[in-house]
Design a binder for these strands. Structure first.
Lengths: 200, 200
DNA sequence: CAATAAACATACTGGTTAGAATGTTTTGCT
DNA sequence: AGCAAAACATTCTAACCAGTATGTTTATTG
């Protein structure tokens, strides 16, 4: 195999296993040894491709975590159609569609925010970028809805965006404490009411 | 000094220092050694009073973390007066009044929920108890507001309670990523709108 | 076909971890 | 006073941690 390709595949393997383990057990609680055991490669291989655990963490955030949020919560906002119906379908359907594993383990981004969000500024920046991208996409959609006469013009788009994100991330943490979905249904009912209110 | 009193004071000292360090550095990232260094006592003293780190963690949750939420977010809900004004003052004023340290480090309960909420069921139960107590107090206040003709009767109290809690915990995590309060102001604006809508 | 460098593996370092074992001091009780 | 137990301190262990040093194997290139 070509070296360049082989190297890239190995890095992707490490990042992928690292993401899974960070998600399940937390960032600081996951050792390089444990990650490399999952890849069936050695520690030497890791430090050949990465300079430090921090460097890996940043790649996991900017490649895997960010992609997950973009694919699941941001890109779908750009589809055509009624802005409010779009918001509903993205926020409600996605939450309902999560597999048990994801409900139990919460949001990978939110887990990292709460675990290492007050740690080092490089982590802060990487995670903040995702939030900002999400916020921007929401604002854009809300403004589109106002233009289309679907959303009240007097509401602050950035306030609605942040409130939607906050509640979503909040419930994904709280859901971890329960073994059933009733708390999720409460949230969804609360969200529906919220969206109803900004309707024109 | 009486033995019983001395023992109790020592346990309180350990719990207090443990809470501070858990808050700043996370639960798993805080060692017994580090905690006992902060108390100026020895590791032997710790294992005389506590059987394990887990036992200490549960005491910190049920005594310190719970008390913090009760004092700051639950007890104030029982004051007399207009229910909506009460909600506003509790959620908005408290968030604004947090010192820089608390804004940067987030919510102690939410940090624990996201760090160890999917870990062991004893932690889940201890943290869930706090959420349930908070939710109950909010529902009680919302029902009171409905009776007083201050809140729309058709809204689901449990849905509003969970949505309020979710958004609050969510923003306390997100705020960690920023160095200023603009994201907090967005949240507060969003919250005001939300409360306005359930008004009768 | 060599020389070279990339892609790994193995073995180690110095530090930290939860917890146990064992010692010493303080307090309580008769 | 004298004995017992509680409240600590000191020392140790076996495992784990991030990162380094030094190998060996595989691919690339002249």
């Amino acid at each position: 195999m070509k070296q360049e390709l082989k190297s890239e595949l190995t890095k992707q393997l490490i990042i992928s296993k690292a993401f899974d383990l960070f998600y399940e057990n937390g960032f600081k609680n996951t050792s390089i040894d444990r990650i490399m055991k999952a890849t069936d490669l050695s520690k030497g291989a890791f430090y050949h491709h990465y300079g430090s655990k921090k460097e890996l963490g940043l790649e996991v955030i900017s490649l895997k975590v960010q992609k997950r949020v973009v694919d699941g919560m941001i890109s779908p906002l750009n589809r055509p159609g009624n802005s409010l119906e779009l918001l509903e379908s993205v926020f409600i359907d996605r939450l309902r569609a999560f597999p048990f594993y994801d409900k139990q383990n919460g949001c990978p981004m939110n887990n990292l925010i709460n675990e290492i969000g007050n740690d080092e500024s490089v982590y802060q920046t990487a995670l903040r970028n995702i939030i900002e991208q999400w916020k921007s996409a929401l604002i854009q959609l809300l403004e589109r809805g106002k233009q289309a006469g679907e959303i009240k013009r007097e509401v602050s788009s950035s306030a609605v965006a942040i409130y939607l994100i906050s509640a979503f991330e909040g419930i994904r943490g709280i859901r971890k404490l329960y073994h059933e979905d009733s708390v999720l249904e409460d949230y969804l009912k609360g969200l529906s009411m919220y969206l109803e209110q900004i309707k024109v």
